[in-house]
């Protein structure tokens, strides 16, 4: 194992958030008086970091796609694909955990909330990225088209998940009008909750990067074998 300090950091951060996430006292008003969240508010430390980690991973993927289009090095293309793949896995986990949480606080697993729909569309756009990439046998063309599509996918993902849900009524925090969980935006987290939330984001992001590097190393070994 080459540089492995950040892998240990990821393990330490995640174990910390799993312990602190259950033990930290919740703000009584937000969890019990102003909403029906109760103890399920702790999902904030587990469901939301999925999306933050996904956003981080696909941003890395975007950077590698741009780098490939500037300088066509096939390794960049593989990096972009694998980071997008791990990001999509995190996105699917975020969608599932969100549905479980919604079932018990909003009354239904899927209530056609703008953010739910946006996230689902964004994920489908990324699934299309893999389909598109695998549909072309020519390596050069494949990498170029996939790179261009990846940039498009990223910049449709951002409005889908971050901007459009804030422009209409939404059950998610940050929407206009009546909200599903009032006062449960990022700014309702007090200092103690932030101390659990941000380490969780970093921990999941590092774990995602770790899993991606494992896949990358396997891919590189495979390429070597094919070229020999």
């Amino acid at each position: 194992m080459r540089q492995y300090w950040w892998k240990i950091l990821s393990i330490v951060l995640l174990i910390y958030t799993f312990i602190a996430g259950f033990l930290v006292p919740l703000p009584y008003e937000t969890a019990y008086l102003n909403s029906n969240l109760y103890e399920s508010m702790r999902n904030f430390f587990f469901h939301v970091p999925m999306w933050f980690a996904q956003l981080g991973l696909i941003t890395i993927s975007l950077v590698y796609s741009i780098m490939y289009l500037r300088k066509p090095n096939p390794t960049y293309d593989i990096y972009a694909t694998e980071f997008a793949r791990t990001g999509t896995v995190f996105g699917v986990l975020g969608l599932i955990t969100g549905a479980i949480w919604a079932n018990y606080t909003w009354g239904a697993a899927w209530s056609n909330d703008p953010k739910q729909i946006g996230a689902a569309i964004a994920l489908l756009i990324y699934v299309a990225y893999f389909v598109l990439r695998n549909s072309m046998p020519d390596l050069d063309k494949r990498a170029r088209v996939a790179g261009v599509y990846n940039i498009f996918a990223y910049f449709i993902y951002i409005p889908m998940i971050l901007i459009l849900p804030r422009l209409t009524e939404s059950l998610h925090p940050g929407g206009q009008g009546s909200e599903g969980n009032p006062g449960m935006g990022g700014n309702s987290l007090d200092a103690k909750l932030r101390l659990v939330f941000w380490p969780a984001v970093l921990g999941w992001l590092l774990l995602g990067a770790w899993i991606t590097t494992l896949r990358l190393r396997v891919r590189i070994i495979e390429e070597k074998k094919h070229s020999v």
């Binding site: 194992m1 393990i11 995640l14 799993f18 259950f22 770790w210």
Partner: peptide, 23 residues
């Protein structure tokens, strides 16, 4: 629930570490 969740997490970590070593 916390104990169960941490057990799953540690199990996954052990799996990923073994995979890393193998690669």
């Amino acid at each position: 629930v916390m104990a169960v969740a941490i057990t799953i997490l540690v199990g996954l970590f052990l799996y990923v570490i073994r995979l890393d070593r193998k690669i």
